[in-house]
């Protein structure tokens, strides 16, 4: 039986083990709370992460593409991007999958049911997944920076407009001086 098939059979066991590891990246006193994923509204972090890990793992072993994986991996990264993690800590959980798989497939590896090459290929997939995670993480952070910038910009701009210090460019056709008078920088006649 090939690796992909074994991983498929052990999918729920692997997802659970992976999730347990991810929860351990949080403060120890909170693991009990985060592991209880029955109610997604009282524990959105745990429930969202658990669901996402299952979907991401399935996508990974069924050979889904980057654009198909992004929406699945986005929710937990989006959460970790606003929690008190460093960038590396925020995405590190992707790499846990390598050890989780080795641990769950200990027997099969020992019995050489799975080849080194197969395992190495799987590791490559996880590495690729980590790069996708990095892109998502940066996208989230850039969005937050944008919120901050927009907040300051809209506050200031509005004030300046209200005080008649700045005004917007008028719509073409409504301006007092036609917009194309200085089309070439005012050097039309020289």
């Amino acid at each position: 039986m090939g690796l992909e098939k074994i991983l498929g059979l052990k999918q729920s066991e692997i997802t659970k083990a992976w999730f347990d590891q991810v929860v351990k990246t949080y403060h120890g006193d909170s693991s009990h709370f985060l592991l209880d994923v029955k109610d997604p509204f009282s524990n959105p972090v745990g429930a969202t992460t658990f669901k996402a890990l299952g979907e991401v793992f399935e996508a990974l072993i069924s050979g889904k593409t980057r654009s198909e994986i992004i929406p699945l991996l986005d929710p937990p990264i989006r959460i970790r991007a606003v929690q008190e993690f460093s960038p590396s800590q925020a995405v590190s959980f992707v790499f846990f999958l390598k050890n989780v798989v080795r641990h769950c497939l200990e027997k099969e590896i020992k019995n050489t049911e799975i080849s080194e090459k197969e395992l190495s290929n799987f590791d490559d997939k996880v590495d690729g997944l980590s790069l996708i995670a990095f892109d998502i993480y940066m996208g989230c952070r850039e969005q937050i920076f944008k919120f901050r910038a927009e907040h300051v910009k809209s506050r200031t701009l509005k004030l300046l407009e209200k005080a008649d210090i700045l005004c917007e460019v008028p719509e073409v056709g409504t301006e007092i001086i036609p917009h194309n008078v200085y089309k070439n920088g005012g050097f039309e006649n020289t």
């Binding site: 403060h27 006193d29 909170s30 709370f33 985060l34 009282s42 972090v45 606003v82 929690q83």
Partner: peptide, 14 residues
């Protein structure tokens, strides 16, 4: 009250 705070739920910080 422990797990009812939105900041705890969102951060996991005890």
């Amino acid at each position: 009250c422990a797990d009812k705070c939105h900041f705890y739920i969102g951060s996991g910080d005890p």
